[in-house]
Simulated assay, not measured.
Amino acid sequence: MATLDIEKLRKVRGLMTGGATEGERAAAHSRAEAIAKAAGMTLKVALSKLDAPAQPKPRSWFDDFADAMEAKEPGYKAREAAKQAERNARDARRRAEVLAAYGSEAALFIRTEREALLEAAIAPLATWDQWTDDAGTLHRFAKTLDGVASDFWNVKDITPAIREVVTSAYPWPATLAEALSEVKDWDRLRWDRGLFCRPGEWSHYAEVECRVTLLEDELKSGRPAASWDDLQARFDWKRYTEERTWIDPTPRDDPFLDRLEADFAFLKASAQAAGQESTAPNGSQAASAPQPATRRTNAQKRADVLSMLDTHPDLSDREIARRAGVSPQTVNTHRRTRKPTA
């Protein structure tokens, strides 16, 4: 059950008495009732909270953290304030983009086609509850699935019945690259909706969480790679999971994995150049006899880097280095010294 949003209720109460028209005041009253109901209260009880004296917030270790860091690293507060300002600006830009794409905040929270298919598929297994959006609209959600209730779904929580319906609600990805693409789609939807909620307030519906959990399990270890592209998707998944954990955009800093990806890119290119089947790195399909790998010359590496700088100048030095099998420093040197294409 949601906690009472005091500030939102305070604004709505102002419209209940100060609205320009009777209709506006009635709409505000209905919205206030919905806010109270979402918190498990009557409107009278909820309104009484607005006039209650504010309770002093207990101090915690975090309250003194910024002061301690400022003493240790002068300028810390200013740097953190600048970071927060950039986050706020970035979120504001993204909110504008989302509203332009969906047309309205309400449209953003309407179930997508995939969400609707999953909701229909899990209906026989679900018990239902409701949540109320800012406009007072009720939305139902599955409180339990096959008798299981969880805020954080793990593979072990997903019963065979749940697995069956969420994997068959619409086609399951045929490749690991497709699985990663779907995970990214779900993450983007969650982040976009979260921009219009209080921090940490929005999470996916249970059936979506179950599908995402199973997709991520396949990417981690659940499905053997059947192609070079599958192996690449697994590398991409590892990079994605590390970079998405940070509040601000932060490239992965792992030289060993960078080296491993570069080795893979080199071996893949060598195998394909030797005429081996690109879909059979593990021998699962017929392939021509392996040929000795031919090491690329420095001139060939330089040509590959320059080609990618021309065709994909937006890629980072690290990403181009990964694809070309060279160091990020090499890419940066070529980026700074190359002549612009006509």
Rank of each mutant, 00 (worst) to 15 (best):
A20K: 15
Q55V: 15
T341W: 04
A121L: 00
F196W: 03
A299M: 07
W237P: 00
L176S: 07
K8Y: 02
D314Q: 14
G325M: 00
A85F: 05
A174L: 13
T132Q: 08
W191C: 03
V45I: 13
I247Y: 01
A116N: 09
T175K: 08
L118E: 00
G14H: 07
G103R: 13
T241M: 08
Q285P: 01
R111D: 10
T245G: 09
R87V: 13
M41S: 06
W128M: 13
L138E: 09
A20L: 12
A20R: 15
P53V: 06
D314L: 07
F62W: 09
E319G: 05
E207W: 01
L9N: 02
F141S: 04
D317Y: 01
V305E: 03
A81M: 09
L4K: 04
L214D: 00
Y205R: 12
A303Q: 15
S278R: 12
M69H: 04
G325I: 02
T17C: 07
G283D: 10
E201I: 00
A321E: 08
L257P: 01
G222T: 04
K77Y: 02
L257R: 12
S203A: 13
A96T: 14
G136R: 02
D134K: 07
E113R: 12
S227R: 05
P53L: 11
R234A: 01
R163C: 00
A169N: 08
G147N: 07
G222Y: 03
A293I: 06
A85T: 11
A269P: 09
S181Y: 03
P171V: 10
V45D: 15
A27T: 11
L145Y: 00
C210D: 02
H139T: 05
E24A: 14
A32L: 09
D230A: 05
A177P: 06
L315Y: 12
F256Q: 14
A161R: 06
R193V: 09
F62A: 15
L108I: 10
D67Q: 11
K77M: 11
A26Y: 07
A107P: 10
N332C: 13
G200F: 01
Y170S: 07
D192Q: 08
G283W: 02
D217H: 14
P58Y: 02
L99D: 05
R295M: 12
Q285Y: 13
I110M: 14
L9H: 00
K37V: 11
Y76T: 09
S284Q: 15
A233T: 03
R296L: 15
T127I: 02
W153L: 04
A101V: 13
W191M: 05
V148M: 07
F152K: 13
D146K: 04
A82H: 03
A161C: 06
